[in-house]
Write a protein that binds this DNA or RNA. Structure first.
Length: 379
DNA sequence: AACTCGGGGTG
DNA sequence: CACCCAGAGTT
């Protein structure tokens, strides 16, 4: 708190949350956005359903990645009723490749709630919106302001960086004190109307101008209001995040072939890629350079009672999941004998395994590595 | 406050 | 490669 006690002999009666007047700040933001905003598919309407879908897809996911997913998803499921009535497998298939698949399952669950609790009408109040699964403070504020014109603040990656620079905040942003300050700022600067446009404009400034590296302060509509720029410290703010230590892991994926069929399993609710399908995978000793694969066939028998012979190496896929760097060795196997035995996960839920024609893999929602393998088989 | 959850874009 | 992304939910 000693921070804000830095007593500048304030030149005005009512202190502005930004350098200069808040009215000028609003004018600059608005004029810039009119000139420079991108043409994005979710900006074509204020339909709360479409705003909602876009906001969920955009969580931790870049605009360029989301565009095509948004078009496909809303074309296939144009209303909240269509989504509520859809099979979860269809929703996951539309989400395949986007990552954070819990978003898709919570989206589906929320659609059912909107139908059952709110008679199919998207709730207008921030608290009601935030009570839906998968919707936190940011997403609730975004939907409330953009779709309903409510005077609600937002705070996400772009605006955290922008606001930190605007107020010259030189502490780590992840602390609760920093978050509290930034949310307060987000609220303090809200205009009295056109709040949805204003919030989107600030995200756009953060995304296009006030970038993490090389912020373009010369072209920034807000440099006159920016404390960091005033102090020449825009490259030091915000402070860099603590970098995470990656853990290398080696796994093997098995393409077990039985005529034109392959063996796949559905990931359980308690594991990664819940609800998605994947080829059987097993962990290998770390730094395994494909030397010791002798135990794999036994692991498969142990897991589902199917015996198969290890064949050639197909490909190696490297990918990352949170703190893990996974090297995935992909090998073909040929089925020899055995019938799939029913599985039960540690959570008591059934574990579904099945044989599926290679030509039918397109129907299933697959993990990204599973899809890459599947494409390899059908070519 | 730390951790989990993906995958791709970018320089 | 490293860093980043219109976060939410759990521990």
């Amino acid at each position: 708190m000693a921070k804000s006690a830095r007593s500048q002999p304030s030149k005005k009666e009512t202190s502005s949350p930004v350098r200069g007047s808040l009215a000028a700040f609003h004018a600059h933001v608005s004029a810039w956005f009119e000139q420079h905003q991108r043409d994005l598919p979710w900006r074509k309407s204020q339909d709360p359903y479409r705003v909602w879908i876009s906001e969920i897809m955009l969580q931790q996911t870049q605009v360029a990645t989301v565009k095509e997913y948004f078009r496909r998803f809303t074309a296939q499921l144009p209303t909240v009723h269509d989504l509520a009535d859809a099979e979860e497998q269809e929703v996951l298939r539309l989400w395949e490749g986007l990552g954070y698949y819990r978003r898709a399952r919570q989206l589906h669950a929320a659609a059912k709630e909107i139908v059952s609790r709110f008679e199919g009408k998207f709730p207008r109040e921030v608290d009601e919106i935030q009570s839906l699964p998968g919707i936190g403070r940011y997403t609730a504020g975004a939907i409330a302001s953009i779709a309903f014109g409510q005077r609600a603040p937002i705070l996400e990656a772009n605006t955290q960086r922008l606001y930190a620079r605007l107020i010259g905040w030189d502490e780590t942003l992840t602390t609760s004190a920093s978050q509290k300050r930034l949310w307060q700022f987000a609220e303090d600067i809200l205009p009295s109307d056109n709040v949805g446009i204003f919030n989107q404009a600030l995200m756009e400034v953060g995304s296009l101008v006030c970038t993490p590296k090389n912020p373009d302060c010369q072209q920034c509509p807000l440099s006159a209001h920016c404390e960091a720029y005033h102090q020449g410290r825009q490259v030091e703010i915000p402070r860099p995040k603590k970098k995470i230590e990656f853990i290398p892991i080696t796994e093997i994926a098995l393409v077990v072939r039985k005529k034109n069929q392959v063996l796949v399993r559905q990931c359980g609710q308690d594991e990664r890629w819940a609800g998605l399908w994947d080829f059987p995978r097993f962990a290998l000793p770390t730094d395994n350079d494909s030397s010791d694969l002798s135990g794999v066939a036994e692991q498969l028998v142990e897991a589902v009672g199917v015996r198969a012979d290890l064949q050639q190496h197909l490909t190696t896929i490297k990918h990352g999941v949170t703190k893990y760097r996974i090297t995935l060795l992909c090998h073909e196997m040929t089925y020899r004998q055995g019938r799939l035995k029913p599985q039960t996960g540690p959570d008591g839920q059934p574990r579904v395994w099945k044989w599926i024609e290679v030509s039918q893999l397109g129907e299933l929602p697959l993990s990204t590595t599973g899809r890459k393998l599947g494409r390899l088989l059908s070519t």
